[in-house]
Design a protein around this nucleic acid. Structure first.
Lengths: 204, 204
DNA sequence: CCGACGTTTGAACGGCCGGTCAAGCCCGAG
DNA sequence: CTCGGGCTTGACCGGCCGTTCAAACGTCGG
């Protein structure tokens, strides 16, 4: 049946991408071998190269795929919440590494950092990174604008605030992920909420 | 003469570390080969391993060495300025990639990002990173405290502000370094100064 | 039951690169 | 001038890993 083959193929594709993302998360991009991915996916090494042109392409695809996936999940979850303030609160909580009890969800921050490093020299990855980052800022800005339109927040430059808040989250997340003894997840969460309240103009 | 040999040895050591830092900056940690460093230093590949135990050790040392060096240079330059406000201004300007006309000074941000990625799995590097990061926050906090003691700034929690400002700088620098079309060096500089003024409590 | 084709395997190849080493070089001491 | 010991070289080794490939497998259509 020709209708089942393409779907099976697509599944294999994604299975391998998932496995690759998992391996990269735990071993790091530089230490990830094709055979590691094969093991994680439960297939033979040869099959990896049957579905992907090269190791480099596979890893690059895995990085953007995983981050894109995280973003989609976050957006879907946030859209359910009624008020802008709650949405923002949730976005921050989801961004703090280790703050919420993760249900077997791989941490996206290490993958993000690999994207950064790779994007420095890989133009294709640089383009993907910029798109993902713009979406990230955009989604923050959209929440702020929605809150302003609903009268929740006073009128201010949403894009500028989104840039600052998003960058602050990035910078803090780096330290939290490194287990910095001075920057606990709780402290990061609090700092983000306070800055958000102050910049956007709402009460905590 | 036994007094001259140790100095020559130390020079060679540093020459190689410098060369390694340069190579890592332009090729990336993962793509840096021993022979690249040898070429950059103008010596033979064998000599690299005469001075360093292994490639891994060399690269790890080079990363912390270069970042430490940058930090020392920044501190020295800042200490010359008379007021806390000027010091802060200078610190921000120096932190914005590509904002000041660089005089043949290698950009430390790509090296920082390599440190982050490596620190995720290398405990020794993790320790060095935390120390460097603490110094970074500390130096911001010290400037703020000095300004408060001098009556330049109102009394607030200097450590908390330093954490926020430092993290904001990190997060913004990432995007600037990636040549993000929405985040120019000028925009980063302005955002940092405005946040600093607002958080610390001074007029621009 | 057969043939065909997409999928999967794992052995084998080949290049690359970290690390070793024996040999020379340089320079100062005696 | 000669000796000695660090310093430097570059050829070489060995293993690792990305990639290739021929063979096998399984499934579906006829």
């Amino acid at each position: 049946m020709s209708a089942v083959r393409p779907r099976a193929t697509k599944d294999r594709h994604q299975e391998i991408l998932d496995a690759a993302a998992r391996v990269i998360t735990e071993r790091g991009l530089a230490e990830t071998r094709i055979s590691d991915v094969a093991d994680a996916a439960g297939v033979s090494p040869g099959l990896i190269l049957y579905y992907f042109d090269s190791k480099d392409r596979l890893l690059a695809e895995a990085l953007t795929y995983a981050n894109d996936d995280f973003f989609v999940r976050m957006s879907r979850e946030i859209r359910r919440l009624p008020t802008a303030k709650e949405q923002l609160h949730r976005l921050i909580d989801l961004s703090v590494p280790g703050y919420l009890p993760e249900d077997s969800k791989l941490d996206e921050w290490p993958l993000w950092m690999e994207v950064w490093v790779r994007a420095l020299r890989d133009p294709r990855m640089a383009k993907d990174r910029e798109i993902l980052d713009q979406r990230w800022r955009q989604s923050i800005a959209d929440i702020i604008r929605a809150g302003q339109a609903a009268g929740e927040f006073p009128a201010r430059d949403a894009d500028e605030i989104a840039l600052r808040l998003g960058s602050l989250i990035d910078g803090l997340a780096i330290q939290v992920i490194m287990n910095d003894s001075q920057v606990s997840p709780e402290r990061m969460q609090r700092a983000c909420m306070e800055v958000a309240a102050q910049e956007i103009g709402f009460e905590l």
